[in-house]
Nucleic acid binder design. Structure first.
Lengths: 131, 131
DNA sequence: TAGCAGTATATGCACAATCATAGATTCCGT
DNA sequence: ACGGAATCTATGATTGTGCATATACTGCTA
């Protein structure tokens, strides 16, 4: 609890904030510019694409993402509007909803993936360099 | 550029995102609950408090924070409304504006600091543990 | 099986963030 | 000294986010 510890914690946090902001911003810009996708939209498509059947319960999607439940619900709504996912009720738990990647959604994710990975390669470890 | 590299980048980024979100959320909740301050509001007060004269140009405040210029302008507007800062024009560059901590602003920062540091201590290095 | 607590999702509302741009001032070339 | 480019801040418009809550369904208890 010495002053050194305070400063060290502060420095650690500021570095984390700064690194995160730098990568996020680059991803955000590149995905928006080249694929008309926000970062969180892309990342949800990515999570869905990782499922063997391309589908996932809202609940699980929500806990994997860093978004609130309501933000995720609206996000999936937007993806649905764009024709990238479809929603359907769970048969064995009819409270639940699963989101399923459409063909277009899978294609969008595959198309955007190289951009995403390239930006990660450029910015992770090279803080402050905008892509 | 092997598949391993892709996965490693992805994993690195997800860990960064998750660590950042976890700390940010805890700070946000604790500061809001105990001091009626948002995280970015507190962090701006903190930057001002670090200046020997408690004042700083909007421009510098903006580049130190992770906010856009316009977001910072409004944020300082809110702090001004709360009586925590005052705005004045720079005498030697009348485009510029400097924000100055008021007495109340300095007190608010000092009062909230222990909460901030405590949450940092709890969450940095202990990801997933909400304060 | 009736009722109640718990869980899953969607939505109204308030608010903060961004982008684009306006308004004001400074800087520089000629 | 003039005029245009560049810089600094504020603001209108739009959008995404979180909180609180409504709605629907499940599962447990009596």
């Amino acid at each position: 609890m010495s002053k050194n510890t305070h400063d060290s914690l502060l420095q650690q946090w500021r570095e984390l904030e700064s690194a995160h902001a730098s990568v996020r911003e680059s991803l955000e810009r590149a995905l928006e510019r080249e694929h008309r996708l926000s970062l969180s939209e892309y990342e949800v498509l990515q999570r869905l694409a990782e499922q063997s059947d391309g589908q996932c319960r809202m609940q699980d999607l929500s806990s994997e993402s860093e978004l609130s439940q309501s933000a995720l619900s609206r996000l999936v709504g937007r993806l649905e509007g764009a024709g990238y996912v479809e929603r359907g009720v769970c048969d064995h738990d009819r409270r639940g909803v699963y989101a399923t990647l459409t063909k277009a959604g899978r294609e969008a994710q595959v198309t955007a993936a190289p951009t995403y990975i390239e930006v990660l390669g450029t910015t992770l470890g090279s803080p402050g360099v905008a892509a």
